[in-house]
Amino acid sequence: MSEQIEMVKICKVIEEAESVRTFIFSHKMDFAPGQFIMVWIPRIDEKPFTVSYHTQEEFGITVFRLGEFTKRLYSMNVGDQIGVRGPYGNGFNVSGKACAIGGGVGMAAIVTLATERDDIVIVQGAKTAVSLLYRERFPNMVMFTDDGTEGRRGFPTDYLSQLQEKHKFEKIYTCGPEIMMKKVLDFCLSRGVQCEASLERYMKCGVGVCGQCVCDGFRVCTDGPVFSADVLSKINDFGRYSLSKSGKKVNV
């Protein structure tokens, strides 16, 4: 774990989908799928990101052009530099016949996991065909779109029973919108399938001292961001509340 911010240069930019780009850095990082890094743009802000691409020599992050920070990051070019510290937090516990269900920005954690475990069935949900991510990296991915323009129409969570009957998963990983992850958890609990979800919260220190990212008695940055079903089922805030920048409890 590195406490000091290291400045790293963008060496490649990949267009992933509409308003979504992956930035690759030629920088070695000792990283386990599920962990996150803090990304710093001097004078702008610092935010947590899941690593979406990881090899011996390189790592990458996928950026959705949403707010001030991501707009700035999205518009960067090869040769520009950002600051990174980490990786922080725990990773996924890899075992058994597994499925990984992701959506949106959460797909980043899913694909680094699937890169290490090529027998994992990847399921992605997206709004529409052009928002689907990482299709070339994972041609066998099971896809769902809200509007039916690609793959099956609907949410992956609507087809959990079918998927489970077909594949008999021992474990389901999930990362994406919390409502989706909550549905996945509830399904796994009802079927006795193991489950791990990677949570997202607004963060400050990233190292477990400030209390900004807490979910009940757990610090997402340090005790997570990956939590197992037995822990998640005890977290009242999961699927319900997160802390805003001021620390106010808001609905997720």
Binding site: E3, D45, S244
Partner: peptide, 25 residues
């Protein structure tokens, strides 16, 4: 809302923070 990030920084002899009293009121 307090200050913008980075607000907390570990260094070899301890920590620096400028959280800026973020709190929900």
């Amino acid at each position: 809302d307090g200050h913008k990030n980075p607000t907390v920084l570990m260094y070899e002899a301890g920590m620096l923070n400028a959280v800026g009293y973020s709190n929900p009121g």
